[in-house]
Amino acid sequence: MKKILLLLGFFLNGAMLFAQNIQVIRKKELLELLKPAEQQVVVYNFWASWCAPCVKEMPIFKQTAEKFADKVKIVLISLDFIEDVEKAKKILQKKEISFDTFLLDETQYNTWIDDVEPRWQGAIPMTIIQKGKKRIFINQELTWEQLEKEIHALLTSK
């Protein structure tokens, strides 16, 4: 019994370190998330555990969350299949992403890609940086310098 408790303790400890929660959402909730906020810069990143450049660029979103803590909101949306949610979770934990993220459970891609961004053909990684009506759409792997520059531009814009 003690052993079990000990094990449980270890497990909880591990989980506490990076309490990563992936909220599974559908199209309706996604479009709700994408609604522009007048006063806030929001960075949306569409990724998946199978997408190497997505995983590679993930640390820059952690960096954003740290550097622009109160000014920028980060919304990570995994496009992994629902049965791969644990794979996505593992990567987020490994990359020490502690804020809540999302997984979009909609595999009828053609029914929602245009609603997210008409210029987007569906390739990932895809990042949107948005403030009010201003929207920057980037359909490739980002560097920290690029992302920081774009965020700055939107933060200082009226």
């Binding site: 998946a48 569906g122 390739a123 490739q140 792997e141």
Partner: peptide, 11 residues
């Protein structure tokens, strides 16, 4: 014209 998720072309 139909869209779908895929990998980006590695330019």
């Amino acid at each position: 014209q139909v869209k779908a998720i895929g990998c980006t072309i590695k330019w």
